[in-house]
Amino acid sequence: MAPGDIVHLDEATVAGFLDGELPADERERVAGHLEKCDECRAELREVNALAQSIPAIGDRRGRSRGIGRLTLVGGALAASIAGVVVVRQVTNQPLPQIATRMRAVPEGEGRIEVVSPLSRNVRRSQLVFSWHSSSVDSYRFTLLDASGRMLFTSPTADTTIVWPRDVQQTLGGVYFWRVEGIAGGVISSTSARPLQIVP
């Protein structure tokens, strides 16, 4: 079969096949196509691997939380207290001092690296905050307005968070965000990163 002759499987059929929800005759028809079509078979293998790795993310979250409860109670408590203290300090300080008030860990274990957004100007559709760390167990994400007032703060075991639903976005508005992490009872933090929402 020449590549140009192939009509590939549609999305619903691939999903139905992977979930075992196709009727028997339809499943056989799809199996016949898959046997001949390398591209659809590659897609099937890849999506299956992705589907299996998604529960693993959930498991990791569970483990991280468990570890936090069992071994980092003191650290977590300290972190939560420190978080409140830092936020209160931030809210009472002029903006230029926000970064210097953060307890940033520039190098070494526990360092949190920002993945996105890296630039100051961020489109509405890109309002996803993402970061990376090799050893941090749990995080606290905080969003501040231009005056340093806390708009949102939440603990998370994930390394991605979308713009909080309850916080209204103002086009042209300036905000600051940061992530704190707990690794081995030590708190680390990114600097407070500015962002401006652009169309």
Binding site: A12, A15, L22
Partner: peptide, 21 residues
Amino acid sequence: RRYVADGHGKFTTWLLVVVRR
């Protein structure tokens, strides 16, 4: 809307296929 109209399987599986494509 295509999932709502003719989706087979779980939504997350369907979304994985769509996002990958």
